[in-house]
């Protein structure tokens, strides 16, 4: 027989859930991560596969958005050329806080096999990266794993946005530096 009214009182005693604001906010943020529809090279093919029905990003609340204004995550999928670096950074700047970045594949991580004059040697030279995903190209499963690791990271951090905006870019020289 269909029940028209959920009987809270009989199971848990009272219709109350206790939590902290951080946990509540991060629960919401981590379970609806919307990446930017932004592909640079062949890694983008794997990224598209991750979004399609076989691997199905949607079941994790991850839905690709066509505008940086609506996106939380930037997946840098592929080789970033120096000519394009300016536009990648502009898209990152247009994303609203809080925002996270996944560097997908060898080319985005380090420049990969493109050890040449025209390729950015690691996107972390211009954009602060949260998750580095190795592979050439990474399988869709590993991109989903990276997204789950990012969810874990978000759940651990403070919901206060000011803490998220400043991230270290110290790996290049070992100096303490900040890139906003």
């Amino acid at each position: 027989m269909a029940q028209h009214q959920v009987n809270y009182a009989s199971t848990a005693g009272l219709p109350i859930a206790l939590t902290s604001v951080d946990k509540l906010v991060n629960w919401g943020r981590s379970n609806s991560l919307w990446p930017l529809t932004y592909g640079l090279a062949c890694c983008a093919i794997e990224m598209m596969a991750s979004g399609d029905s076989r691997y199905d990003f949607d079941r994790m609340g991850t839905i690709f958005r066509a505008s940086p204004r609506q996106a939380d995550v930037m997946i840098l999928a592929g080789t970033l050329s120096k000519k394009h670096s300016e536009f990648a950074r502009r898209l990152y700047d247009q994303m609203t806080e809080p925002k996270w970045v996944i560097s997908m594949g060898s080319c985005a991580n380090t420049g990969g096999m493109f050890n040449t004059y025209a390729t950015v040697q690691g996107v972390d030279r211009i954009i602060p990266v949260d998750i580095y995903l190795p592979g050439c190209a990474p399988r869709p499963e590993t991109l989903q794993y990276a997204m789950m690791m990012l969810q874990k990271k978000i759940r651990k951090e403070s919901a206060n946005m000011n803490k998220n905006t400043k991230q270290d870019l110290t790996h290049q020289t070992g100096k303490r530096a900040r890139l906003i």
């Binding site: 420049g111 211009i126 020289t173 100096k175 900040r178």
Partner: peptide, 15 residues
Amino acid sequence: KIFGKAYRDIIGPEN
């Protein structure tokens, strides 16, 4: 182009 020459020290040379 993105940050200006003052940021060269912060970001460091390419590896």
